[in-house]
Simulated scan of single mutants.
Amino acid sequence: MSPTPSDLSGTASLGSYLESWAPVSVRDEDPLHAGPVAALSAVFDLPYSAAEAGDPIPPMWHWLHFLNWPAHGELGVDGHPMNGHFLPPIPNRQRMWAGGRCEITEPLRLGEPAERISSLSSVTSKHGRTGELLFVTERREFRQSGRTCLVEEQDIVYRSGRSAAQHPGELDESALPQTDSLWQLPLRPDPALLFRFSALTANAHRIHYDAPYCRNDEGYPGLVVHGPLLVLLMLELPRRHAPGKQVRSLSYRLRRPVFAGERISACGTPTGSGAQLSIATHQEAQYATAEVTFG
C-alpha cells in the first residue's frame, strides 16, 4: 500500500508513492483554430499577417492548443490541478518544467482537425541539492489526416514539500545581456506579457502572476517567466533569420528561472545542419539552451 500525504515524515521515498500509479494513454482532439496563433503573434509583437486555415503552425506553437481547463475547485494552492492523469500522486508537489524534445515530420496545419495521444514515457527518482526529485517524462504524438506529424517529450520535475527554494535575492533591471551571437532577439518580459501568455496556454500557476505568493511561498524574488515562453522566444531566431528552413528536431533545457523585469536576449549561432540557441541575461549566458536541426 502506498503512503498517504499524512504519512509523510521527511524520510519516505518519493518512489513509494508511485507503486500503484500506472496512468494509461489519453487521446484528445482539437480543431486547431487560427485564433490562438494570431493572439500569440500579437503578444510577441510579431510583424506577421493574420493566420489562416491551412497555414503551418510554427514549431511548438501547438502548445496553444489541446488545452485543459479543470474546474476552479480542482486547483491546488499553487494554481495547478490537485489531481490529474499524469500528475504523480506525491504530497504537496512543487513543479518545474526541466526540458524536452520534439521530432517534426511535417508541421501541423491550422483549420485541420488533429488528435493527440499522450502517454507516460518514464519516471525517475534522483537526489539533488534540495532533496529527492521525481523526473516525469510525458510523450505526446500529434496526428492529422491519419499521419503522425510530430512527436514530443516533456520532462517535468516534481519535489515534495513546500519549503522556499534558494533563488537570487534581487533583480538587476538595468543591465543588458552581453553576447556576440550572430542572431539576437532582446525582450524585457513584464507582468502583462506573462498574464497574456498564461491565458493563452491555460496556465494558472501562481508563480507567473502572484508576486506575494512567489516571494512568500516559493522563495522567488519576483514573477517567474514561463519556460515555454523562453523556448518559443529562442525558436523565433531561426524563424526570422532562416525562414526558408524547416525545423525538424528540437531539444531544449531550462536551466535557471528568469524573472519579470529582467532584460533578456535570445541568442543563436547557426551550424551546418541547424542552430545552437540560448537565453542570456546580464548574469549568465545560458539560462535556457536549445538545439535545432533543419530538414
Rank of each mutant, 00 (worst) to 15 (best):
R239I: 14
Y213I: 11
Y213E: 08
A39D: 13
P59H: 11
D30R: 02
H241K: 01
Q178F: 12
A260D: 07
L185P: 01
F66T: 14
E115D: 05
P270D: 14
H226Q: 15
F259G: 01
A199S: 11
Y252C: 11
L75C: 08
G146M: 03
V43W: 02
P91T: 03
T4C: 09
L182V: 15
Q283Y: 03
I156P: 03
Y220V: 07
G272I: 07
Q144G: 00
T105H: 10
D155W: 00
L18V: 10
F197H: 00
R109I: 08
I104P: 07
T130W: 00
M60A: 09
L232V: 06
E141D: 04
Y48T: 15
A192P: 09
S174H: 15
G84S: 10
P89M: 03
P31N: 14
A266C: 09
A34F: 04
D172E: 09
S16N: 11
Q246Y: 07
S249D: 13
V43Y: 03
R93Q: 01
I279A: 14
P221S: 09
A260P: 05
E170G: 11
T289N: 07
C102E: 02
L223W: 00
T201G: 09
S25P: 03
E74K: 15
G76S: 00
A175Y: 06
L233E: 03
P238N: 14
D190K: 10
M1S: 02
R239G: 13
Q178A: 15
I207Q: 01
S13P: 06
A50F: 09
H205P: 14
N92M: 15
R140M: 12
E153W: 04
W69L: 04
P113N: 10
S121Q: 12
R248V: 12
L232F: 08
H85L: 02
E218C: 11
R253H: 10
D210E: 06
Y287C: 14
A164N: 12
V224S: 13
R27E: 11
T148P: 00
L237C: 03
P212A: 08
N203C: 00
A202T: 05
P47R: 13
E141L: 10
R140A: 09
W61K: 05
N68I: 09
I57L: 13
A71C: 10
P59W: 08
S49H: 12
I264E: 02
L237T: 08
E291H: 07
E112S: 02
S251K: 08
E106C: 00
L40Y: 11
G131L: 03
S41A: 15
P177M: 02
H65W: 03
T105Y: 09
V224E: 09
A266Y: 04
L229E: 07
R116Q: 13
S16G: 12
V24S: 12
P191T: 01
D155G: 08
L87W: 01
P56E: 15
E74W: 04
E112R: 09
N203T: 01
M60R: 08
A242F: 05
N203S: 01
L14Q: 08
P56Y: 14
S13Q: 11
D45L: 06
G169S: 15
F44Y: 12
G99A: 12
L182F: 10
D78G: 02
L150A: 05
